[in-house]
Every structure is written in structure tokens, then in C-alpha cells.
Design a protein around this nucleic acid. Structure first.
Lengths: 337, 337
DNA sequence: CTGAAAGCGCTAACAT
DNA sequence: ATGTTAGCGCTTTCAG
């Protein structure tokens, strides 16, 4: 028996197919009573729309994507996931336009570019800059479906796709607890909310596992600062483990190598870029926590498309993964999903 | 500009749409020359079929799935991935029929059930039993598209979806090398190819990291045997780490707990079932390697559907993931993809 | 071996 | 507020 189609529903509700379609999708003007009758019929018959047919008949399939130009390493991985996802959805007739803005100049570039995109597309994916809070209300006024990435904006503006940064902190402490007694943490910038949550979860998990956190410092994502901090750690209150939630693991590892401490002090970092992979290979970095940027991007596309289909769409939190050197091959040339 | 459709291709090649379709899909009888002309036109115009239209127009969308009844834990996770994938593809009109056979009775049940399924469906996913080699030629004779799971059959019979068991061994050695000097390994049954590869990769990676492998024993996937082996390890050549590639980690952990050695000897196992999760939580198991059964199942569905669409389809190797207690929530109630 | 025609299930003008 | 009519791009009979 073939599955029930919209035509069955329409018949059961005593209306035309077009009316049934509108009632089901809240499109056009349909009386409340009709909507109810159609919904009931659909429910009763167990109607599930055929997505292939919807996609074939639908018209609005243009996606706009706005991202910053840097950091290039992160951007490249996002890009990879987007390309994969768009290749897939491209087979169903979706098209995408990708636009970049200068992250350091987000105040000037973000909104104009976002508005331009909104005018020419049917759905938006965007990565906000440092000052997103300042123009968040303007973003809210754009009414086409949208999804934010990497930074969580207010759910009332749009659902977002972000990494589970608390999970990251816990994972790092859990890992270090197996081979260390005293660990130092080097974060990006603790004025940022997300980084604070990372500190909290790391400290909490460390405490519960008997791992002493000897210090927490800000690197401001600067290599030089990270180097200085590491040198200071080596001179004073020597820990036997370091967790860095910033991109600066390679700087830390470099210092340890120079001082002959590589592998003696366990370092765990985040993300798998070329330089981090190198440190994993030479052993100066013991583990890294993969934020799975390609998957973040893919999820953003999936989320947006479900929004464009009129579905509800709820924010996604990406699972961080613990990566050791021996598994690197699986994460370099990664395929999302 | 809308993308090029099959009608554009047909026009360019000077044939009808129907002929173009057949030429492109090797359906029906089309002269070699016409096929060439159509292919060239398609190539030149950068034609990409619209999948929504293909799915809407296509007729053969019934998938048959055959799996053993046990181990129930594994089966449940496979089932979860299958259900998710089928829910998704169900929206495009695909239907599935799932049939089980008694694993211990695979010689009698497997082929008849597989043949029955083949007769009533357009594509097959199957998990072979212990004696798959004995009837592999019969399986080969079934000509509809098929995909094997969990056990790799000859590529000429069908592509398969399996976990990267070498990666597992390496990951385990890599992990233990951070906190141990001497590790023992407990496998399922080394007469099985796959288990031997696991041993090899574990030993190789251990050697390269200065981790001494003190012993390798077979548990035959029996809890009692695993207990006995563990007790023996504790009495003689005491290692400070144990890797088990069998399901028996909980048995090993139980012994360690009873002897007050939990957490002093690091244990790393495979898979996340209820009992393994419990051991991770209480600390008797330090880590577990997730074989991602739901994803295996989903990949099998994806692979089969691409086969059913006439594409080539190549075997998939699933990436094993290292899981620590603190990340358990992400793996319990897991969502594939 | 090729082509004309029907139709997959749905949405979107355009009437009414 | 509802119905009528065209397709969306493709596969598949069925006639030649």
C-alpha cells in the first residue's frame, strides 16, 4: 500500500489539494476551521509529506552564508563542511552564495553585507563578529530564516550551532587526570563568556578527579604571550600538565621542546590545524580536542534548510572529540557527518 | 540562471528526454553511439541530475534489512541508526523491511531469509553470521544492490561498512602509553582475522611508544574466561594497564574492583553499552573506544541507496572514537551522523 | 533502438 | 477563503 498523500488528506477533509497544502503549511489565507479539519485528517491518516515532491515543487532554495575572513584555519574547515553540505543539497536544487567580511572590521561590514544577502536569498547562515551584541537587534529584524554559527546568539533571534565548550573543559581535565597531578590552564580571554565557562568546567572536573589546577592565564590568542606564560610556568610552580583552550598550543609545545620538557609535561589543546597536528606527531602535544568545524557547518546548513521548510529548528551543540596522534589520519581530510 | 536539466542535455544531443535518461542510466536499449553523444553533452553542460525529481519519479524504493538477533546490545545500537536513517529517507519515499535471524543458527536461517527479502525488495543490507564464508557464493548470486555490515565480505560480492579495527588497536596503545609502562591485552578470539589485526596494530603502536605488552589472551567473549584471565594477571606478571578488544571489559573491571585495584590498573575497552558506561562512571574503566554502531548503520543505508541509484558505491570504514567518562552523555542517547 | 506521454506528490500563481 | 491549473525534473510504460 502506497503511503498516504496530500490528495488523500484533502479528500478526507473535503477540500482541494491546494487548500490542504496551504492549511498544512500555514501559507495563504485559510479559515481556522479548515485548518483544523485538514490537520485532523492528516493526523488520522498518518500523513507524512513527501520531501522529494516538496523540494521539486518548491521555489525558494537560495542560501546566503556570511562569515569572517579569519582565523583562516577555522574558516577553511567551516568552508569544507559547507562545501560538502551544499554539494549534497545542491543535488536537491539548493544553491548557495558565500560572502566574507573582515573580522577586525565587523562593525562596518557585517550588517550591510548581511542585509544585501538577505535581500537576494531565502535563508541565511552567519558567523557574527566580536561586536555582534551591538547590532543583534538589526539582525533580528531580518525575517527570513537564519542560523548563527560558532557564537550563540539569543534563541529568539535565531537558533545557533556551537561547540559544547563545557564538554571540552571536562574532557581536558578527565584526560590529564590520568597522567598528571598538577595542571595549569591557558585560555584565550576570560572576559569572554564562553571562555569562562570553559574554565569553570575544567576546574570542576579537575577537582572531582583530584587534579590540582595550579594556575589559569590568558593568552589573548597571541603566540608570544603564550610563550611567555609557558616560560614562567617552567620557572616557578612547575605543573606536570597544561590545558590550553586557545589556539596557542603550538607555541606552548615549542617552548617545551626547546627546554627538553616535551612529553614530560603533558599538554592537551584544542582543534586540529596543521601546526597542532605536527605537535601531536612529534609528541610535544599529547592530545587535542576536535571541535569538528566541518560538522558545525554541515549542521548549520541542515538546520537552516529545516527552517526554510517551515519547521521549528532548535539549536545544535556539537560534541567535542578527544584526538590522539595515532588517530590523526581520521581527522585530517575529514568528512563531515 | 537555472541549472541545466536533462531536457537541455537531450536537446544538445539531439535526442528525446526519454532517450537521454536511458542513456545516462544504462537503462533499456540505447545504441552505443547515442550513449556517447548524450554523455558528452551532459559532461559539456555540467549536467547534474536533480535528485528530488529522480526520487519522485523513481519506483524502486523498498529496502530489505537482515540482521542477527544477538548480541542484543550491538543489535540495539544498529537498530537505532537504521531507524534514524530510515526515518530520514522515508521522507523521500523509501520504505524498509527488517528481518532477523538467529545468529547461532545462521547456517539454516540466513540464506532463506535473505532470498525471501531479495524477492520482495529492491536493495539489501545484511549482517552475516559466523559461517558467512560457506554461503557467500549464494549471496553473490543475488543481483539486486546490497551492502554488508560489520563483517567485510569480498568487495566483488558487495561493499561493506566496518569499523577501522586497526585504528582501535593503535588508539588503545596510544592512550595507555600516557599512563602505563606494561600492558596486557585480552582479545575475543584470535582465530578471527579481524581480532588478529587488532592485536597487530596494538602491539605495533605499543612498541613505537615504549609500552611493553606483557601478554595477549583470548576471552572468547566469555565473562567467566575474562575473569579468570584477569585474576591470573593479578597474581603473576602484574601489568599496570589492560586493553580489551572484546565486550568483556565489565568482567575485568569487576575483578579489579573486588581486589581493590580499580583505577590503579588502567583499563581501556571497546563500545559503550550500559555495563561499560557504568564502569566508566565508577572509574574502574578509564576509557572506551566507541565503534559507533548507529553511524555504521546509517552509512550502510546511505551506501545502499547510492547503489540503488546506480552509483558505484565503495566500502566505508568507520572511525573509532576515544570516550572518557566525562563525555558519556554525548554517547548515551547518541544521534548518528 | 527511440520517442511521446503519463505521472510521481507537491507548491504556487491565478482565478473565483 | 477556496479551487483550478501549471508545472518542478525525472523515470517509466507503451507505441512505434
Amino acid at each position: 500500500m502506497p503511503r498516504t498523500t496530500i490528495s488523500d488528506v484533502a479528500k478526507a477533509a473535503g477540500v482541494s489539494i491546494a487548500t490542504a497544502s496551504k492549511a498544512l503549511n500555514n501559507t495563504g489565507n485559510i479559515s481556522a476551521d479548515t485548518v483544523r479539519r485538514v490537520s485532523e485528517a492528516a493526523e488520522r491518516l498518518g500523513y507524512r509529506p513527501n520531501r522529494a515532491a516538496q523540494l521539486l515543487a518548491g521555489k525558494n532554495k537560495h542560501i546566503g552564508i556570511l562569515m569572517p575572513d579569519e582565523p583562516a584555519s577555522v574558516y577553511g574547515l567551516f568552508r569544507q563542511g559547507l562545501d560538502e553540505a551544499m554539494a549534497e543539497y545542491g543535488e536537491y536544487g539548493f544553491r548557495a552564495t558565500l560572502v566574507q567580511y573582515a573580522r577586525k572590521n565587523d562593525r562596518e561590514e557585517f550588517m550591510p553585507k548581511l542585509k544585501a544577502l538577505a535581500a537576494s536569498t531565502n535563508g541565511l547562515i552567519f558567523v557574527g563578529g566580536y561586536h555582534i551584541d551591538e547590532y543583534i537587534d538589526e539582525v533580528r529584524r531580518i525575517t527570513i530564516p537564519k542560523v548563527s554559527m560558532q557564537v550563540a546568539v539569543d534563541e529568539s533571534v535565531s537558533p545557533s550551532v556551537v561547540v559544547d565548550e563545557e564538554g571540552e573543559g571536562r574532557l581536558a581535565a578527565n584526560f590529564l587526570s590520568f597522567c598528571c597531578k598538577r595542571a595549569a590552564m591557558i585560555v584565550g580571554d576570560r572576559r569572554i563568556n564562553l571562555h569562562r565557562r570553559n574554565i569553570e568546567s575544567f576546574t570542576a572536573e579537575a577537582a572531582s578527579r583530584g587534579l590540582v589546577v595550579t594556575s589559569v592565564d590568558d593568552s589573548f590568542d597571541e603566540y608570544d604571550t603564550a610563550r611567555r606564560l609557558t616560560e614562567r610556568l617552567l620557572e616557578s610552580d612547575l605543573p606536570d600538565g597544561i590545558y590550553t583552550s586557545s589556539y596557542v598550543a603550538p607555541a606552548i609545545c615549542a617552548v617545551l621542546r626547546e627546554r627538553g620538557m616535551a612529553g614530560k609535561i603533558r599538554v592537551i589543546g584544542v582543534d586540529i590545524f596543521d601546526d597542532t597536528a605536527e605537535c601531536l606527531r612529534d609528541g610535544s602535544l599529547s592530545a587535542s580536542i576536535w571541535q569538528n568545524q566541518p560538522l558545525q557547518a554541515r549542521r548549520a546548513v541542515e538546520l537552516l534548510i529545516s527552517l526554510m521548510r517551515g519547521e521549528h529548528g532548535v539549536s545544535v551543540r556539537i560534541k567535542p572529540e578527544l584526538v590522539l596522534a595515532s588517530a590523526l589520519a581520521h581527522y585530517t581530510n575529514y568528512q563531515a557527518t
